[in-house]
């Protein structure tokens, strides 16, 4: 993700439509992808992504430039996602699309199915762990950047990413344990 320059951000803050369009073009995909993986529903993720960019447009003038723009934007995205998940908590009994019930191990053939299984396992993590893991594995942020986005310490981020991976492996193994001819959790 290319970071916009200070001048570009000033123009965006002044309401330059072209610059705002450029920011949307550059960041909409990653933001939508992150939100989709966080909330587990494409429609809701799109609504949230629109909301994130509206919030960004309103407050980009106050962006001090102390952090990277992408870090700041994903902080907004993360807050929007977490707020949404909290609002939805009451009706959380039903799992969203990405959290669909873990597949039977017999279905797990081929890379696509394996990826789906991994996503199912990630979907069962709690929000803190999932958010940290997505920022690292999906978007490639460094631990320090993730700490900024999650407003947390480096040690906490390191631990959350580890705990997330540990739990994903545990759930993955539980699903694949019965599959003959394939050691659970081992890369092919």
């Amino acid at each position: 993700m290319r970071e916009p320059s200070a001048d570009e951000l000033r123009r965006a803050a002044a309401g330059d439509e072209r610059m705002l369009d450029n920011l949307v073009r550059a960041y909409y995909g990653p933001v939508y992808n992150y939100l989709y993986r966080l909330v587990g529903d494409a429609g809701e993720a799109e609504d949230l992504a629109q909301e994130v960019f509206l919030r960004m447009a309103r407050s980009v003038g106050g962006f001090g430039g102390r952090a990277r723009f992408s870090t700041w934007l994903f902080q907004i995205a993360r807050n929007a996602g977490i707020d949404h998940l909290r609002r939805r908590e009451a009706e959380r009994a039903r799992l969203p699309a990405v959290l669909e019930p873990l597949r039977s191990s017999r279905d797990a053939v081929g890379e696509y199915e394996e990826a789906q299984l991994v996503w199912s396992c990630i979907g069962t993590l709690n929000e803190d762990l999932r958010s940290a893991l997505l920022l690292r594995d999906l978007l490639g942020f460094s631990y320090r950047e993730i700490a900024e986005i999650l407003e947390s310490t480096l040690a906490t981020v390191k631990w959350r990413i580890y705990a997330a991976r540990e739990q994903v492996q545990e759930r993955y193994r539980a699903v694949t344990a019965t599959e003959p001819g394939r050691a659970p959790g081992l890369p092919r």
Binding site: L20, N22, A42, F53, G140
Partner: peptide, 24 residues
Amino acid sequence: LVRQSPPPPLARRPVEGRVLARAA
């Protein structure tokens, strides 16, 4: 696997610059 999994395609166009400019 996580890095290589694309999200589902967007159903709508992303918010446009002129809308954001109004918000800004």
